[in-house]
Design a protein around this nucleic acid. Sequence first.
DNA 1: CTAAAACTTGACGTTGACGTCAAGGTCAAG
DNA 2: CTTGACCTTGACGTCAACGTCAAGTTTTAG
Lengths: 133, 133
Amino acid sequence: MRIGDVAQKAGVSTRALRYYEEQGLLTSDRTSSGQRIYDNSAVERVQMIQRFFTAGLASRTIAQLLPCVDSGRASAELAELLEAERERITAAIDDLLATRESLDRIIDITNNPTPEHCPGLREPTWSPYNPAI
Amino acid sequence: MRIGDVAQKAGVSTRALRYYEEQGLLTSDRTSSGQRIYDNSAVERVQMIQRFFTAGLASRTIAQLLPCVDSGRASAELAELLEAERERITAAIDDLLATRESLDRIIDITNNPTPEHCPGLREPTWSPYNPAI
DNA sequence: CTAAAACTTGACGTTGACGTCAAGGTCAAG
DNA sequence: CTTGACCTTGACGTCAACGTCAAGTTTTAG
């Protein structure tokens, strides 16, 4: 497979694939003329990379993670990283759930514009999540 | 309260507060010399803004949302926006849940490095069918 | 063979939410 | 009065994940 095929099958741009390679997330064989050649597993790998990106992992983090996925082994340091990312994701989920509830309250109020809804509107039902951790 | 107090109480930078004002998310009174003056409700409002940012809403979207929060009323257009953002957040939550499960599997495998874990490592748990591995 | 499509590297552009410096004005304390 | 903490606007810097254009090479289709 060439880069365009992988891009189409994985639903990303060719630019993204070259970027992944540049970041050490994806490897490719080359033809004698220099064109990238991938096997079928590349599509799955790209989709996995995409999921990690969507989950808010940085490319450097993913680069650390992938060898662990491949080998099934993690150093103590890497295990810490995994746990830290897990907690970050959990916090992000909690934050999104809280925000969705806020939105639901707003939606409910705007659908049923009765005065008694108003006072509690700004009650902070959640605690902020710190992305810097 | 001056800007530094609000920043500290809300846990953000003064730069962020000026940015929020620039984006129409936050208002302030001014002293005769031009310094910003806030009342206590500003802290809560900033925290609400922060939550929306953390949930991935853009400043323009928040700017559209806040009047609706304040008034408890939404135009049909705005109601659509609310619903769209709700769906976006739900999708983000689902994605994070799936990614967390992937991470959990990796963590489990690295904690119990037994060979029988390995084959399924790349199985996409969220995918409808299982391609040839 | 030729034209179009697809590929290559390189480099600059984009976007958003601020960080950060510059060059000052303001204000309470001693 | 003066020092130092805090404030102002303005403007440029940052970072990440690509988008996009350029200019040339390779592959494919007819």
